[in-house]
Design a protein around this nucleic acid. Structure first.
Lengths: 110, 110
DNA sequence: TCCTCATTTCAACATCTTTTGAGATATTGA
DNA sequence: TCAATATCTCAAAAGATGTTGAAATGAGGA
């Protein structure tokens, strides 16, 4: 995960419809769900959903596969968890380990 | 952390200067650093830095305290780590625990 | 008190993002 | 092959966000 990827990912997640789509797909699990079902869950037009789904896919947060007539979208879990790793990298100049537990900078400074 | 707070946080992190400020403050640790030093590190005008610092503070990702003439900014760690918790909530319909370790949905579906 | 330093505020402008609706494309079953 | 279904693309309009430079505020020291 580099800065540019992180920026794209955060931009993707900063939009209400897209954040909801990601959470829906996180809950759905690795099998994912078809674009149409996502659209129905969001109550949004197909072009709107398509726009947001490709935005999320370009950012690497979800991916798609075709299955018969449908295109199935699913969450890319490592991309999501990689975001916090990127944010917390070098936390407190390396004096604490944010991957071990919740980063507790009170315990690692001075 | 609710949806609106998460949207604000992600929007804050989706801008290059702001993402760099947060990473700088994460590395700086809980003591933080004055606005002027942040601006110098970014090579940006004071009004630009001030705009982005208040954006981040409004989103709850950083906070400030006055110390003599300077205003010292520091990262709010729980707000940062709360972001992934929010994203991963109910992951795979609760069949895996994303806070325990990296969420491994391969092991929790079907 | 007055001056200086550190930071914030403001308004105008430029730029980027999202929504809309119409039409295009791809896959399957009759 | 044709019709039906599922999804995507595109351009224009609307809306949101970031940048700039000048002026305002607020704290501390002479």
């Amino acid at each position: 995960m580099n800065e540019m990827q992180a920026l794209d990912a955060f931009a993707s997640l900063s939009q209400e419809t897209r954040l909801r789509i990601v959470r829906l797909l996180v809950i759905a699990g690795p099998d994912g769900m078809p674009a149409g079902a996502v659209g129905e869950a969001m109550g949004a037009s197909s072009s709107k959903i398509s726009f947001h789904l490709s935005h999320l896919e370009r950012a690497g947060l979800i991916r798609s596969r075709r299955e018969a007539r449908s295109i199935i979208y699913s969450a890319v879990y490592p991309a999501l968890s990689g975001l916090i790793e990127f944010l917390m990298r070098d936390c407190c100049q390396g004096r604490c380990d944010p991957t071990e537990a919740k980063c507790a900078p009170e315990t690692c400074s001075v």
